[in-house]
């Protein structure tokens, strides 16, 4: 606190920063406060809204689960070993962060589309992606897996490999050393990666809307109401989504702080 106004530079930096914070907080605040609590409650009771929100949560949860099962082992290998093409794999993992998400949706259509061989293969076992719930899941998975894989990789990198080696000399198989030493020690990172990925999945619009317009996820619902009926109609849904995400995010920060992460 003491050094806050220590010199002119601090004052100018503060002013500049304050503009950005204001830019961030003001629209969110306006959106949330523009609708009365009664209206928000009423909106929440709408079946279409409620289904869209639950669908969004559930799809993001499934995407996160898939990324957990496939991504944690990958993160471990990236952290612990050196293999040919490792840089390339790491680059690929980071790619979804920079690729426009509508482009990601198109890319997914090129493989999971109904006329593509993989899409047809899945359809044979009863899984259709286009305009169907599984499409939402893979779109979310594609655009948000970077968060989990990178967090888990950093978590494993922070665990001294010699801890595993000691465990091995004490009688642990590679699996036991992983589950009893590396995984618990990286768990805080993995957990924050899971929550971050889930939150990122919730907010996905671009990739989802290309693959699956109906059934609608909450961001698509907001867009549709805005396009068809205008701002007043879209705003309560937007406010709800902002509030829910805010609550989840605050909860995450609190639990993470308690555990000494973040």
């Amino acid at each position: 606190m003491r050094a806050l106004f220590a010199n002119k530079m601090h004052v100018i930096f503060l002013a500049l920063g304050a503009l950005l914070v204001f830019f961030l907080a003001w629209p969110l605040f306006k959106t949330v406060t523009a609708s009365s609590p009664a209206l928000l409650w009423e909106t929440l009771l709408e079946v279409e809204v409620r289904n869209a929100i639950l669908r969004t949560f559930y799809a993001s949860f499934l995407a996160t689960t898939i990324a957990f099962v496939l991504g944690v082992p990958l993160a471990y290998m990236l952290a612990r070993t050196e293999f040919p093409g490792q840089e390339l794999v790491q680059g690929l993992i980071d790619l979804p962060i920079v690729v426009p998400h509508s482009a990601a949706g198109i890319a997914l259509l090129m493989v999971f589309g109904r006329r593509m061989w993989l899409g047809r293969l899945f359809e044979r076992v009863g899984i259709r992606f286009v305009s169907n719930f599984p499409g939402i899941v893979i779109a979310m998975l594609f655009v948000s897996l970077s968060f989990l894989v990178n967090a888990a990789r950093e978590g494993f990198e922070a665990v001294d490999p010699r801890l595993e080696r000691v465990a091995r000399t004490l009688g642990a198989s590679p699996w036991q050393a992983f589950w009893r030493v590396s995984f618990p020690l990286a768990w805080h990172s993995i957990l924050s990666g899971l929550i971050l990925m889930w939150a990122r999945g919730l907010s996905e619009f671009g990739a989802v809307v290309i693959l699956v317009y109906h059934p609608m996820v909450a961001p698509v619902l907001i867009y549709e109401r805005f396009e068809s009926f205008g701002l007043d109609y879209a705003r309560p849904v937007a406010a709800l989504l902002i509030l829910i995400c805010l609550a989840v995010f605050v909860l995450l920060r609190l639990t993470a702080r308690k555990r000494g992460v973040v």
Partner: peptide
């Protein structure tokens, strides 16, 4: 494999499991 050798190991910087 190391877990079947019955060879104990102690490092300079202890390497106790922090959790």
């Amino acid at each position: 494999p190391p877990e079947q050798r019955g060879i104990g190991f102690v490092y300079q910087d202890y390497m106790l499991f922090p959790h």
